[in-house]
């Protein structure tokens, strides 16, 4: 009987701690958690994903929404050091939006460039962009691909 209640409770507790571990660090009071995917070569998508992040912040309020933008594939250009959107990225980062850069893509682009691309200081390298998205979704984040 006790076992029957304890196991689900333990599972909920463990799941809860993993979600809160990610969110408590950045947005402990967030009511919505969104992961935005940018993997498209079209530069218009760069603007679009940043617009979506801004609109989410405006709608929910800075403390009520937790946003992470995960860039991989051709979309990683958004997080290049000199990207023309760097001012917007800096502002969003200041508002708590997190940026993840795929290490696989960094490595592959480095082979083509002859050196690893220089990234925006706001970007945090993650082992694989798609894995990061899955991890965040498992923690309760909703995936949006603008």
């Amino acid at each position: 009987m006790i076992k029957r209640f304890m196991l689900p409770l333990l599972a909920v507790f463990l799941l809860g701690t993993s979600v809160s571990h990610a969110s408590k660090e950045s947005k402990p009071f967030a009511e919505e958690r969104i992961v935005l995917q940018i993997s498209d070569p079209n530069p218009f998508k760069q603007t679009l994903v940043l617009n979506v992040a801004s609109n989410l912040l405006k709608h929910y309020g800075q403390d009520k929404v937790d946003i992470e933008i995960v860039a991989f594939g051709p979309g990683l250009r958004l997080l290049f050091k000199d990207n023309s959107n760097k001012t917007r990225i800096s502002k969003l980062s200041g508002a708590g939006v997190q940026f993840a850069a795929c290490k696989n893509t960094i490595r592959n682009m480095g082979k083509k460039l002859g050196h690893p691309p220089e990234l925006n200081a706001a970007a945090t390298p993650v082992s694989a962009g798609v894995v990061r998205i899955i991890d965040l979704m498992n923690q309760g984040y909703k995936l949006v691909k603008p």
Binding site: P43, T47, S84
Partner: peptide, 23 residues
Amino acid sequence: TSTAFGANWLMLQGTEPDDAAPR
């Protein structure tokens, strides 16, 4: 500060936005 502003004829016609231009 920045040298990336593109809103004049020299820049509009001669350059592209940094790392945000299509192929």
